[in-house]
Structure formats: C-alpha cells, structure tokens
Amino acid sequence: MTEQSTNRPVLSNKRDIIILMALLGVFGLWLLWSYVVAPALDEDTELAYAWVYHENTLLEKVALDGEVRVWNLTVPDDPDIEMEISSHADHSISVTASDCPDKVCVHTGKIHMKGQSIACLPNHVIVKIGTEEAPGGLGVDG
C-alpha cells in the first residue's frame, strides 16, 4: 500500500473527461439514430413481424399489428418448454413468462424495432423482429 499512498488515482482529469465525452457523444448519436431517427423514417414502410425460432426451426411468424394476444409457445421438439409470449397494442412483443432459470428473456421486455431480438438461451428460443419476408430486418445477424 506504500505505492498506493504515493500514487493515489484521481477521480478524473481533463484528458480523460474529454475521452469520455467523445465516447458518450459517438454512442449517444448512434443511440439516437438507431432508436429514434431510423424508426421514425421507417414508420411508413411495411409491417413488422416477429419470427419465433427453436434451434433454427421456425415455430411461428406473428404480425405486430397492434392486436393484443397472450399465448403459450408450443415447441414440438421439446414439449417441456413453458414460455408465454404476448403481443401488445403498441406493436411490440415480449416474453412474459418462462421456465428458464435466468429469466433474461423476460427481463428483456418489449421489442418492436426491426433488428431487435429476444433470446431465451437456456430454452434455445429466439424471437427476432423483421419484415414479412425475412427475420432480423437489418440483416446484421451476429
């Protein structure tokens, strides 16, 4: 600790604040573009669809047309999976209940933009939002 006493780290300095502000600016603008500007420009185009997969097998394709529905997901290959999916009036979809241990899918909440996804990794279930023709919309699957 002798070294730390003589070399106590500072909370911030001018150089580091500039770096942080620059990063915040870049990612802030990217955030604004992805979540506000791009969806607004895309508003008049086609209806979004939710593609629900289990291990790369398409289970269902749901139009996010504002109809409120709650249903239990049926997975033919694994009938033990218990998941409840809801579509909402604000043209979004969410996983509202799941028997997985981590509940990351439930905590993800509502998604509505093309390119967004909900993954229930323990159950191998993925919900991707795209167009009627293709999932993922933006085509940037990782």
Binding site: S12, L20, Y35, G115, Q116, S117, L121
Partner: peptide
Amino acid sequence: YALYARVAVWILIPPLAVMGIVSGVITA
C-alpha cells in the same frame, strides 16, 4: 450473447455503451 444465440447485436451496442459509461462514472 451474439455467438451463442446467433442474433443481431449491433442495435444493442449504443445503449449498452452509454449505460457502461454512466455506470462506470458512478462506480468511480
């Protein structure tokens, strides 16, 4: 997450980066 689930992740980067900066400052 992307490697495991094979889903789009670019759209997640901006909010997670901004949140990282904010939480990092609070931690500091």
